[in-house]
Amino acid sequence: MVHFPVNHPARPIYRVLAGLVGLYILVFGIWGTVQTLGEPLFDRGDTWVLGLRTNLAFSLVSVIFGIVLIIGASRRGNLGHYMNLTAGVVFLVTSILMMAVLQTDANFLNFSMSTVIVSMFFGLLLLGTGLYDKVGTDEHAAEERRHRHHPVSEAHTR
């Protein structure tokens, strides 16, 4: 059974972290779009923004992802929880796929190894924040805490 802590006391800190990741990605995307405007969409040039190599396509995708992450971090319900989990997986999978094609013509987002590392770091951070920012009723949180602290006694009562 999947176990997500409910109403974790550090939930506001995790949402701030997710919001800061979203803000960094949004600033990177906007700055990258300005720097690469007029170049081909999937250019393999040497444009670097905030320490990461980019092209117009990667910059535009970053703007969209940054906005989505900021929206998810600003919501009080479970929307941010699901968005962070999903974004974390997307970042991890994308970074692994792009690392696999780093030195080939299939590197259409113009990733560098630093971009792969930052994407993996952001993916792990977003996955972690998604694991701890679930919101529920007080009863649900109390039941989850009871199950977490006494899982063996519940198994014997069934």
Rank of each mutant, 00 (worst) to 15 (best):
M1T: 14
M1V: 14
V2S: 15
H3W: 11
F4T: 09
P5H: 03
P5F: 03
P5D: 05
P5L: 01
V6N: 00
N7V: 04
P9I: 06
P9C: 03
A10G: 02
R11P: 02
Y14I: 09
Y14F: 15
R15I: 01
R15E: 03
V16Y: 10
A18S: 09
L23A: 15
L23D: 11
L26P: 08
V27L: 15
W31S: 15
T33V: 06
T33E: 07
Q35C: 13
Q35K: 14
G38R: 01
G38N: 02
P40R: 11
P40I: 06
F42L: 15
R44P: 11
T47L: 08
W48T: 14
V49K: 11
G51D: 07
L52H: 04
T54I: 06
T54S: 11
N55W: 01
L56D: 03
L56Y: 03
F58H: 15
F58G: 12
L60V: 12
S62R: 07
V63D: 07
F65D: 09
G66Y: 13
I67L: 13
I67N: 08
V68W: 10
I71A: 13
G72Q: 01
A73G: 07
S74I: 03
R75T: 04
R76G: 15
R76A: 12
G77I: 05
G77P: 10
G77C: 02
Y82T: 03
M83H: 05
M83G: 01
N84F: 15
A87Q: 05
A87N: 03
G88Q: 04
V90T: 01
V90Y: 00
F91Q: 00
T94C: 06
T94Y: 00
S95W: 05
I96K: 07
M98D: 06
M98Y: 10
A100T: 12
A100V: 10
V101G: 02
L102G: 03
L102N: 02
L102F: 05
Q103L: 13
T104E: 07
T104Q: 08
D105F: 12
A106Y: 14
L109H: 05
S112L: 14
S112P: 10
M113E: 14
M113N: 13
M113L: 14
T115E: 09
T115C: 11
V116M: 00
V118F: 12
S119M: 07
S119D: 15
F121W: 09
F122P: 00
L124K: 02
L126I: 01
G128Y: 00
T129Q: 02
T129E: 06
G130C: 02
G130T: 00
L131H: 10
V135H: 06
V135R: 04
D138L: 07
E139I: 08
E139S: 09
H140C: 08
A142I: 03
A142E: 02
E144L: 04
R146D: 13
H149A: 08
H149R: 11
P151M: 00
E154Q: 10
E154P: 02
A155V: 06
T157M: 11
R158E: 14
